[in-house]
Every structure is written in C-alpha cells, then in structure tokens.
C-alpha cells in the first residue's frame, strides 16, 4: 500500500512544516501582525489541508501576502496569477528549464516544482525583487550591457541563477557560471553573453 504510506509521509511532513510555520510566525512580529489570531487558530487546528483552498502567508520580496491557495498550486502559479508577478516564467512546468527560478531563503529553486503551501515562512525572492531601491542588480546591468537577452523569456530565470551564484561566490570562473546556468534553457542562444555578463558583474565586486 505505497499510496497510503505516501499519504502518511506527506501528512507527517506537513505537520512538521506547520509547526515550523507557527514557530516562525511567533518569532516574527511582521508575520504575526499579518496573521489574524482567529486565522492562526484555524491554521493550527487544521491537520490536513485541502482539498479546497487553504490560507497561506507568503513573504515575497520582503512583503507579506495572505492568500488562499489550493494545495496543488505551485509557487509559480501563485506568483503569476494571484500576485501578478509574471517575471517568473513557466516554460516546461516540470523542473527542467529553470525559467521559473526564484530564491527560497537565498537558494535557487524551481517555482514550478514548489507547492505554495510548502513555502511556509521561507523568504521568497523573485526577479521583481532583485533590484534594490530602483537600482538594478549588477547582473541585471551586465545582462543589458553585454546583450545577454534576446527574446527574454529565459532571462529572469537566467538572471536569478547568475545572481545567486555571485551571492555565494564573488569571483566565479567560467566553469562556475556554466555550472550555475546548466539547468537554464535558452533557445535563443544567449549563453555566451550570459557567461560574459556574469563574469563582468563579478568583476564589479558583487557581494
């Protein structure tokens, strides 16, 4: 009865996540302020989510959103349809092309393979949140400078992968950039310029 076991496991992990979520909510004044007590109580008592829409609180680009999502809704869907953040693209919808790359707590993740209910209290950063105070991220600037975008459909995901690389490695080699983008498909063929742009951005001293 593999199905049952799966279900059991899923429930277990949900319960653990639920606890982590509440703990996080308790510790974060901002989250707490946005989570009504009644809702929190309801959330706490709900051991199993779904099949209908369920309440979640998402932290995207430092803003908090209280939303109703179906348990099967992916983060990419939520971002795109509920929050209107269409910079995160969906191309394969099954974790192959990385067009949907976002950061969860700073690490790259395919938003098409991440369920919104599983995001919980983790910080989501999307392409819309990469520029700070109206100033482009150095990778974004370098992409424009070197013409690392053509049709541009892969570009947000590409930028998120390259910016994440620079966040963990301020002086990457060409091979590091290849490694960081080897999951990002670009049918227009911007790769040579993506490499050049990322290395150039690193040269500018990205933290």
């Amino acid at each position: 009865m593999a199905g049952k076991d799966d279900e059991y496991e899923r429930k277990q992990s949900r319960d653990i996540s639920r606890r982590r979520f509440l703990k996080g909510a308790g510790l974060t004044a901002l989250s707490m302020a946005n989570l009504s007590e009644a809702q929190a109580a309801k959330e706490a008592s709900a051991a199993i989510r779904g099949p209908g829409a369920t309440a979640v609180t998402l932290r995207v680009n430092n803003a908090v959103h209280n939303l109703q999502v179906e348990p099967c809704e992916t983060l990419a869907e939520t971002l795109r349809t509920q929050l209107g953040m269409t910079g995160t693209k969906v191309s394969c919808d099954r974790g192959t092309c990385s067009a949907c790359t976002v950061w969860l707590d700073g690490a790259t993740m395919c938003a098409c393979m991440t369920l919104t209910v599983d995001v919980q209290d983790r910080a989501v950063t999307t392409i819309e949140g990469l520029a700070q105070d109206g100033k482009l991220h150095p990778v974004q600037e370098a992409f424009i400078e070197k013409d690392a975008t053509m049709c541009g459909f892969c570009t947000p995901g590409m930028v998120m992968s390259c910016a994440a690389l620079l966040a963990r490695n301020s002086s990457p080699t060409l091979d590091d950039v290849r490694e960081a983008t080897c999951g990002n498909f670009c049918r227009c063929g911007t790769y040579p310029k993506v490499f050049a742009a990322t290395l150039a951005a690193a040269g500018k001293g990205v933290k």
Partner: peptide
C-alpha cells in the same frame, strides 16, 4: 547599441502573451 527593452527583460517587467491576465 544596447537593447531599448533590456531593462524590462532583466527585471521581469516585460509582459509576454503568457503573462497577460
């Protein structure tokens, strides 16, 4: 010459058919 729409593309602001609601 840098693309005029480069800024829109690297910030995710460019709206494609798939993005329109």
């Amino acid at each position: 010459t840098k693309r005029l729409d480069g800024h829109l593309k690297v910030t995710g602001a460019a709206r494609y058919t798939a993005d329109i609601q």
